[in-house]
Amino acid sequence: MHAEGIERVSSDDGTELSTAWLIRAGKSGEREDFNLEHGLASMGWGHIPDLRELSGRDELKRMMQSAAPNAREKSISTWANQLWTLFDRVRVGDLVVLPRKATSQIAFGIVTQEYRYNNDPEPDWRHVVQVDWRRTDVPRTAVRQDLLYSLGSSLTICTITRNDGKWRLHQLLKTGADPGARATPASIRDTDTDVVDIDSDTTDSAESAIDLERIGKDRIQSHIAENLAGHELSRLVAEILRAEGFTVDTAPPGPDGGIDVFAGRGPLGLDSPRLIVQVKSSPAPVDVKVVRELNGVLSSQDADQGLLVAWGGVNQPARREMRSQFFRVRVWDADDLLEAVFRNYDQLDKELQAELPLKRMWTLVED
C-alpha cells in the first residue's frame, strides 16, 4: 500500500494533519540527549556522505553493501530505505515522535528544517532534520495500548497511522493525553498500516519489525495501572524492597505526610541504609516541588536516602533537581519499577504474584 492512501487525516476543524513520523535515536537511545538539546532528529551511518550528493537510493544501497558485505539483502534494503526516507520524505511541519529509552517517556516535536548533512566529528548525528521539541516528557502510561503497539516498532523511522494514530499523536502533542481512536470508518479500517517507505522491492511496515520486549513491558504496565493503582502500587513497592532484604513498614491508605514506605536494613529495620519512599501512581510526570518535599522529609526523618516512585516519570526541572541530589535521592519510573519486579518476582508474595501473573519466555533476536 502506498503512503498516499493512508496519510490524508484531518483534524477536528477539517484541516489536513501533517505526517506523524516515529524517529528513534539509536538502538539504546544513545542519540536522545544530543537530539533533544540541539533540536534534531538524526540517524547513523556517519560514513555515508551527504545524501544530496548521491544519484539516488540505488547508490546508497551500494555504499551500504560495501560497508556491510555480510548483511542480508533485505537488511541493506531496509537500512537504505530508512535513511533515504529521512532525506526524501520528512517535511517541514511534520510531527516527530521519539520514544525515549533512558526515561520511559515520549518526546514530540515539529520539523522546522528538512534534511541536511551535519559536518560533525561524531558520526552518529550527521544525517539530520531540525526539530522544535515541544514536549519531551509525556509518559508512556499516558498512551493507550493499541497506539503503544505501533510505537513499539523497532524500525528507526516509520509513519504511524493505524488506529487513527496520526490524529492521536497530534492530540498528544497538544494536550499530553491520548484520547483514543475516533469512531469513524477512516480510523478503524483494518487496512491501515504503518509504512516506512515503498519501492519496487520492499514493503516494510512498523508492524513487520516489532520490539517484543517493549510491547511486553507496555502490556505489563497497563495491567499494573489498571489493577495496582493508588495504595496498591505502594504495596507492590514495599514487597519489592522486602524481597531485596529490607525490613519494611507501609503507611495506611490516606494522607501519609509524604512517606508511603519506610525501609531499613537489619531485623528491626534500624540499620543503614534507611530509606523513605514516596509513591506517585499518576500517569502525569512529577514536578520539582515533589522532589524538594522529599528532600525535606529526608532530613526530618533522619533517613539516609529517598526513593521516589513516579509512575509517569519526572519532568525536566525535577530531573535537573535530582542531579544535584545524586547521592540522596533516586527515582523509579514505570520501567525502573518493572525491572525491580522482574529481578525479584520469584521472591514476591504469592498473593501479589497471582494479581500480577508473569511468565518468562525466550524469543529470537531479529536482525
Rank of each mutant, 00 (worst) to 15 (best):
T161S: 12
T161R: 00
T161C: 12
T161Q: 03
R162L: 04
R162F: 04
R162N: 05
N163A: 15
D164E: 04
D164K: 02
G165L: 05
G165E: 02
G165P: 01
K166W: 02
K166N: 12
K166R: 14
K166S: 06
K166Y: 00
K166P: 03
K166A: 09
W167R: 03
R168L: 08
R168N: 05
L169Q: 02
L169C: 09
L169K: 02
Q171W: 00
Q171E: 13
L172Y: 06
L172N: 06
L173F: 10
L173V: 04
K174R: 10
K174N: 06
T175I: 09
T175P: 06
T175V: 06
T175W: 09
T175E: 05
G176V: 13
G176Y: 10
A177R: 10
D178V: 03
D178L: 04
D178G: 12
D178S: 07
P179N: 09
P179C: 12
P179I: 08
G180S: 11
G180N: 07
G180W: 06
G180I: 08
A181K: 10
R182Q: 13
R182G: 01
R182V: 08
A183K: 14
A186N: 11
A186E: 12
S187R: 02
S187C: 07
R189M: 11
R189L: 13
R189I: 06
R189V: 07
R189P: 06
D190N: 14
T191A: 09
T191D: 10
T191R: 12
T191H: 10
T191G: 10
D192N: 15
D192E: 15
D192K: 05
T193A: 15
T193V: 15
T193N: 11
D194H: 02
D194C: 05
D194A: 05
V195S: 00
V196S: 08
D197I: 04
D197C: 09
I198G: 07
I198V: 15
I198K: 07
I198A: 10
D199Y: 07
D199C: 09
D199E: 10
S200Q: 13
S200W: 08
S200R: 13
D201V: 14
